[in-house]
Design a binder for these strands. Structure first.
Length: 568
RNA sequence: GCGCCCUUAGCUCAGUGGAUAGAGCGUCCGGCUACGAACCGGGAGGCCGCAGGUUCGAAUCCUGCAGGGCGCACCA
């Protein structure tokens, strides 16, 4: 619809200029927008205001000329000049009714657009260290990344979800030492527990599993052997656990990428080394103070960065550059990283590295702010030192995946989120996830009612009956009252919401739209009796509209990653 | 000290140059002998942190200031 309006405005501009009624150095952008106030119509353009100065007239005069030039269009009922010089356009009821047909025709594909034109995009998210449970922030980034992937797919991109496993480095060693120490305790040995080791109860749980399975066989071997064995068994356990928890909220990754593969030697050198050599031959590497440096400042970083330390080992950043090189080597047109807010200081150097690798502008780093946990208004205190914390798994168990995912997406990404466990569990009008799901269940109930089914009997399959009731033969021109038009207008917005959410990488737009659509339906329901035995034609048309709303609600909830229940 | 993010109704937040700044919650009033009241309608409630600037027009862009959060390693 936007295209129709834009071309209408553009044509009016062109014909006014060509006819000499408007003198402009160049044709301005049609600048079509949806007015905030519905009484201003469906679409508006401020082009008259923008070009008044260049035309040497006052804005309302320009608007008058343009509206005179606007040819009549079957989808436009009215063209009005308002305020300081806006041109407001009203879409015809007929055009809105056609949206209902489109929804039924496209089904779950309603709102699918071709913004991405099949471009390959990778979304990397969560990437929690495999040395312990995920915290609540990881849960938010999981919801965010997965939903972003879903939206991008709906917008015509080919999307891959990836989890970067930091399975190399000192934290893994610390992890192994911690588990080994707890294991030795279980074997009855005295141990010195390191100051900076992991103290969470889960460490002991993992040690106990090993102890139960293998007894004290590892108690008297060299500590290096013990730790290396424990590192492998324990980290695989944690990784499986992460997969399990994420799967439980509907998040499944296509690729689990191991950091170790970047350090492994292939044909005499590792990916990390090859990456540094690639940067070196491009002139971005120098040696200083026995270390190897990446000249990142020319690419906008605050200072140059060390890749290979004086002791011969590589920095985390070096591996991360090799990782991003690998991503682009795999042929992605675009790479999106979702990082926690505590890593935002890292963005500039990563962007610099990607540019130096020859892929400027192809990396988008989305910074996900943290989550503050509340329970019925009280802050939930957590301490990493004592290992006392509410993990993401705890949260999922308590509030369920639907409420968790929905709440995580209700705030914009760059905004810290206050998550109230009590509220998320509450099945009341304060809980927006139920508001939306209720609208869906309500529609299903209406359809069951219309089918004349015994609504208490859940075993009877009435989908065939419903299908016969919801028919393209329905006289949609009967749908012309305000709540009916408002509902159809809201349905028509769905493809635009997908476009904005995909363009801005902002899945939070989806929950807002879902609530708006649910509200439009509830208003329609309150004012328009759907099933009315005395008015079979009107009933038929309204069932068609209700079912279209059901399809769209299920569609937007699917992008959020939340279920659309038929009963609740 | 430097960098990034944030500051909008009592609370939690939408609003990335347009018209009288919106929503939910809370509060007050009203609506079920009709399809799900987990719903709907209405009222009250705002120097959009402060001060300048840019322009036809600024919550939105620029500069400065104040307040809050997070970062500033040859750590990961």
């Amino acid at each position: 619809m936007r295209e129709v309006i834009e071309s209408l405005v553009s044509q009016a501009l062109r014909s006014a200029v060509e006819g000499g009624r408007l003198v402009l150095p160049e044709l301005p952008d049609p600048a079509v927008e949806r007015p905030r106030d519905p009484s201003h119509g469906d679409w508006a353009t401020s082009v008259a205001l923008r070009s008044a100065k260049a035309a040497g007239m006052n804005p309302r005069q320009v608007a008058q000329i343009l509206s005179d030039e606007m040819s009549s269009h079957p989808d436009i009922d009215a063209v009005e000049i308002a305020g300081p010089g806006f041109i407001n356009l009203r879409v015809s009821a007929n055009a809105l009714q056609r949206v209902l047909r489109e929804v039924h025709e496209r089904g779950a594909g309603f709102g699918r657009i071709d913004l991405g034109k099949g471009a390959r995009v990778q979304v990397e998210f969560v990437s929690a260290n495999p040395v312990g449970p995920m915290h609540v922030g990881h849960g938010r980034w999981a919801a965010l990344g997965d939903s972003m992937a879903r939206v991008l797919e709906h917008a015509g991109y080919s999307v891959q979800r990836e989890f970067y496993v930091n399975d190399a480095g000192v934290q893994m060693d610390t992890f192994a030492k911690s588990v080994a120490a707890r294991y030795l305790e279980l074997c009855g040995r005295e141990v010195d527990f390191g100051e900076d080791w992991y103290r969470g109860a889960y460490i002991t749980d993992i040690a106990r599993e090993i102890f139960d399975a293998e007894g004290d066989a590892w108690a008297d071997v060299a500590s290096a052997d013990r730790e290396s064995h424990f590192k492998e068994t324990a980290y695989v356990q944690v990784l499986e656990h992460l997969k399990h928890v994420l799967h439980g909220m509907g998040v499944d990754f296509d690729v689990w990428f191991s950091e170790r593969t970047l350090h492994a030697s292939v044909d005499g050198s590792s990916e990390v080394e090859k990456t540094i050599e690639a940067l070196r031959s491009a002139g971005h590497i120098y040696e200083k103070d026995d270390a190897t440096w990446f000249a990142s400042m020319p690419f906008g970083d605050d200072k140059d960065r060390v890749l290979k330390k004086a002791d011969g080992s590589y920095t985390y950043f070096a591996a991360d550059i090799a990782y991003h090189k690998d991503k682009f080597d795999r042929g992605f047109d675009r790479v999106i990283d979702i990082w926690g807010a505590d890593h935002h200081g890292y963005v500039k150097r990563m962007e610099a590295a990607v540019a130096a690798l020859g892929h400027p502008g192809k990396l988008d780093v989305v910074i996900g702010q943290l989550v503050n946990l509340f329970r019925d208004g009280e802050v939930v205190r957590m301490s990493k030192r004592t290992g006392e914390m509410v993990t993401f798994e705890d949260l999922l168990d308590e509030v369920g995946p639907d409420a968790a995912r929905y709440f995580f997406l209700r705030r914009s990404t760059d905004q810290p989120l206050d998550f109230d466990i009590g509220l998320a569990k509450q099945q009341s009008n304060e809980n927006p996830v139920y508001y939306v799901q209720y609208a869906h269940a309500r529609i299903c109930s209406i359809l069951r009612k219309a089918a004349g089914a015994d609504t208490s009997d859940e075993t009877v399959d009435i989908s065939a009956t419903i299908a016969s009731l919801v028919t393209d033969e329905a006289p949609l021109d009967l749908l012309a009252s305000d709540p009916e038009l408002a509902l159809m207008r809201k349905l028509a917005e769905f493809p635009e919401v997908v476009e904005v959410a995909a363009t801005q990488l902002a899945p939070a737009k989806l929950t807002r739209y879902a609530e708006d659509l649910a509200a439009s339906f509830h208003q329609f329901y309150t004012l328009c009796r759907v099933v009315d035995p005395g008015k079979p034609e009107l009933t038929s048309a309204r069932l068609y509209a209700a079912d279209a709303t059901r399809i769209a609600l299920a569609g937007v909830l699917a992008l959020v990653g939340v279920g659309a229940p038929e009963r609740m």
